[in-house]
Design a protein around this nucleic acid. Structure first.
Lengths: 283, 283
DNA sequence: AGCCCTGATACCCGCCGGGTATTAGCCTCG
DNA sequence: CGAGGCTAATACCCGGCGGGTATCAGGGCT
């Protein structure tokens, strides 16, 4: 019943990513034998085989996949504990707000104007907010339902809006008043871009591979793909882009999200005010 | 930037509970000097003072309070990782369902009849479900909104019901057809019982101190207190008890809750069926 | 067959975590 | 006012464990 140590979990996670003892050891800055021993010990302690070893590397077992997920969560929690404690010791620490670059710009602006405590804005790429929040790099995030993974956070709805298709200005669709999801989901010559999975690999398909929003924006400008996003995502509006409302796309809700228990009262208050403000303006 | 080890966090948490180096060390099964050194090292690594020491013990600083909360979360996550991994290695592991003893009995029965995978039921006291879920002792919980802390879990609403006041049969209120919250909130001679806080201390007040539902049930039977609970909490129905509907109490929603990401598809399916079943029966 | 690449084993060493003994404050009480 | 008895901190030693190098073992390759 002895507890696991974070060192073991770190070792395991790296090995689960590399699936190769030698490379994992190198990344960890240790030699291969200690890693073998540590993993073997971990398996004996848990009473479970975590990797199937064979001649050309290691592969995760079912139990290993469970630990890979759980270990990442646990390590994030440990890192969050350290970071939040350090910041708690700083008397005039700012609140760190993380958001996708370019999304909900108006809201962000209203929020920052409205809020009365120091706020530091941290911009990140798509899907990274949850991780930043979980490991303590940020106190609160602006996220979007149903796109982002909100599991495990407390949330406050701030804004609801429709979606638009961003298409190259030169494309016939750019002239339309509005389109439907069916019309943009399978356009010949404009395949949907593919984002990497959590493990860094890409799903199969005809579309171009992208890692960042800027890459994607450029691909749209070049006439190589299109996308459907919330109407307020101003970062996408290049001169070569045209935004066409999508009539039947589900509404997107902009939410403020934060880890359970960690209070960000001031920001929630500000968000409610900003929300009321936005409602007034649209009325 | 070096990571914290779970050993340090365990030491810290125990010390944060005991607020006394000697006693904490004894509980940890080590001597006092190593504990002093470990905590000192932790403080230097975090660059933050965690305890104010003085002649009669130690007291948490603000930063210390932050770490106390975060460390518990992190340790739960680590323990959960170990437990879930062990269980993942067991091919015919049962699903562990945790619920408050006596609550939502009908639903539980319907659920167990409906479900087709082995399920093990773990009964616990009020407010413990979240902890069991967080540290991996259980896979899924039956909880009640707005009473239980659902932060950090995925949920599926199963049942909505009104609340009743449980009063001693001998009390005048027992004869009533229904009552209001105002009528039962401040009854002379029947003060509301006090539950312990997370740290084990009790809030001030006139009511009796209780730790378990059985204690509370007995106190009601003795005519010393009353309480307001969901209508379906059968465990409360002693012969000396009378349940009187409370007309203006907020409805209580019974929910199935589980940690984000850990799939319990079969149980959710069963819950939906049980819900439909219950709806049929009441219709 | 020989080689090479994989991970596992054997063995040694140095550090760090834990032990005992002692010190240093500070309050209390005779 | 000084002695005693709390507290936590310091000093110092030791053993185990984590990490290193050297080597082995097995299974595809050419």
């Amino acid at each position: 019943m002895d507890d696991l140590e974070t060192r073991e979990l770190r070792y395991f996670v790296v090995l689960a990513e590399e699936l190769h003892f030698g490379r994992a050891a190198a990344r960890l800055g240790i030699a291969q034998p200690p890693l073998s021993r540590a993993i073997g010990l971990l398996e004996r302690r848990l009473g479970v085989r975590l990797f199937d070893r064979d001649r050309r590397g290691a592969a995760l077992t079912d139990a290993g996949r469970v630990l890979a997920r759980e270990a990442r969560i646990a390590l994030d929690a440990v890192a969050a504990a350290a970071r939040r404690t350090r910041r708690a010791g700083d008397p005039d620490r700012p609140l760190v707000l993380v958001t996708k670059a370019g999304a909900s710009h108006e809201l962000l602006r209203a929020l920052l104007d409205e809020v009365r405590v120091p706020v530091e804005v941290l911009l990140c790429e798509v899907g990274e907010q949850a991780h930043r929040l979980r490991d303590g790099q940020a106190d609160v995030a602006i996220m979007h339902r149903p796109y982002d993974d909100l599991a495990g956070f407390e949330t406050e709805d701030v804004h609801v809006e429709g979606q638009v298709a961003i298409v190259p200005a030169a494309h016939p669709l750019a002239a339309r008043e509005s389109v439907t999801l069916a019309e943009v989901s399978d356009v010949p010559g404009l395949p949907i871009a593919r984002w990497p999975r959590l493990d860094g690999t890409y799903p199969d398909g005809p579309g171009p591979e992208v890692r960042t929003q800027s890459q994607l924006a450029q691909l749209v400008a070049l006439g190589l793909t299109l996308l459907v996003i919330p109407a307020s995502s101003r970062a996408w509006q290049w001169p070569e882009h045209v935004a066409v409302p999508v009539t039947d796309a589900p509404d997107v809700t902009t939410v403020l999200a934060w880890p359970p228990g960690s209070p960000s009262d001031e920001l929630v208050r500000a968000a409610r005010n900003a929300k009321a403000l936005a409602a007034d303006r649209s009325a």
